[in-house]
Design a protein around this nucleic acid. Structure first.
Lengths: 217, 217
DNA sequence: AACTATTTTAATCATTTGATTAAATCTTTT
DNA sequence: AAAAGATTTAATCAAATGATTAAAATAGTT
């Protein structure tokens, strides 16, 4: 243990107009990790993508694992936040929340198509740590969205159903097409442009399909 | 290149009552690959799980990649076959196919919960080769199932919809809960047993939800 | 400019990991 | 039983990979 790297490098003057090294590494790491996952990523891939010397990665982030943890945490937070934000909104109706969520969530995934499969495939064999890192997720069944769903059931507007089923259906209909894109695209013999067109259609349709399903006996 | 391993080892007498080495390796490989994926799997993990000497893996399968290819191909075929079998059945109605598919597909995934995320996460960054290995998938839009869907739309029993949307919704509702199990289980603060109970419920519910959505304007 | 602290580089380590080899053991055939 | 062939083992290799080090370069301060 030498002293030089005991603490993180001091953040010197921010090189305005140009991006600093730490950010360059993080951006490259985000891209490569999202694309290939932790195990298939070489620290050299990240260094090359960032256009930096390999040693700088360890100088700024100590280890591949620590860098990954940062990227994963930020990625998860970005996704969970956007979801909870909509679900917690107190004013709007259940139906309106559905519309806003589908619109936002699908748009978010259009901008970052690799993120859903990244999250899911990293979580699959990860220790408790990662799942607890998202302690936020178990807040979902306490949101206004779920409360309104239960209310709708009580009033007889919707058929009785376990709310988690509805969350599964909603996320299944929005996220799955991104998770399974290579497969589904091949099924439909589609170009990326055509596939994207379907995603746009789904922004409007998913809420309707879901509402209809809630009325099924 | 020595001669000894130029060809595959001769399959000698099958050791009845006991499983042979090749099968032991394949079974262990299937388990480990399904759990951790290609990149995160060490050949030593497989050897240990199979209870064999590391060199035997290469003796029987030449390389990690070749062993993986075999496992992946078999895994894919198992999944696609069960899907096409139902969709191609000429006699049954559209609604009946839906019921049978949901029942079979969910049951298959209950037996092999790691398979869906395994397939999807390996496919994501795989070269064309893997996707073409499943040339079968693009047959789906030519099945009786899709033909009957189009017919139903023409007759006005269903609202007009691109069939691929319906396939997305169906697979999203069946497969996604398995793909995202760690996340969804945490959301619902559920035990494995409780989560499995939900999967059983979905066998009956997914067809109803999907039919209802088809009638949504 | 001289001095100090920070950032970057090239070279190198140590470990992990896929694969191979040669010898040993076991099985089948003669 | 001897010979031939198949299977298994222990030891080892070579390349890949995460990480470190010492020195060089750069920026900031006096």
């Amino acid at each position: 243990m030498k002293g030089r790297k005991e603490k993180a490098p001091a953040k010197a003057v921010a090189p305005l107009a140009d991006i600093n090294t730490e950010e360059k590494i993080k951006n490259a790491a985000r891209e490569v990790f999202h694309k290939n996952g932790f195990a298939a990523t070489r620290t050299r891939d990240i260094a090359t993508a960032a256009g930096i010397n390999l040693a700088l990665l360890n100088y700024y982030f100590r280890s591949k694992q620590k860098l990954f943890d940062i990227i994963m945490l930020e990625t998860l937070q970005g996704f969970v936040r956007s979801l909870l934000e909509v679900f917690n909104e107190e004013q709007s109706s259940f139906e309106k929340k559905l519309e806003i969520f589908a619109e936002r969530h699908i748009e978010l995934m259009r901008q970052h198509p690799g993120v859903p499969i990244f999250i899911l495939s990293e979580i699959r064999s990860s220790p408790e740590s990662l799942i607890q890192k998202m302690g936020v997720v178990d807040l979902i069944l306490k949101t206004a969205f779920v409360r309104q769903l239960r209310q709708g059931i009580k009033e007889g507007r919707f058929a009785p159903v376990e709310p988690l089923h509805v969350v599964m259906n909603l996320l299944g209909m929005t996220a799955f097409p991104f998770v399974a894109k290579p497969l589904l695209k091949e099924m439909g013999r589609m170009t990326d442009k055509e596939y994207d067109q379907l995603m746009l259609e789904r922004k409007k349709m998913v809420p309707r399909w879901l509402i209809a399903s809630l009325k099924a006996k």
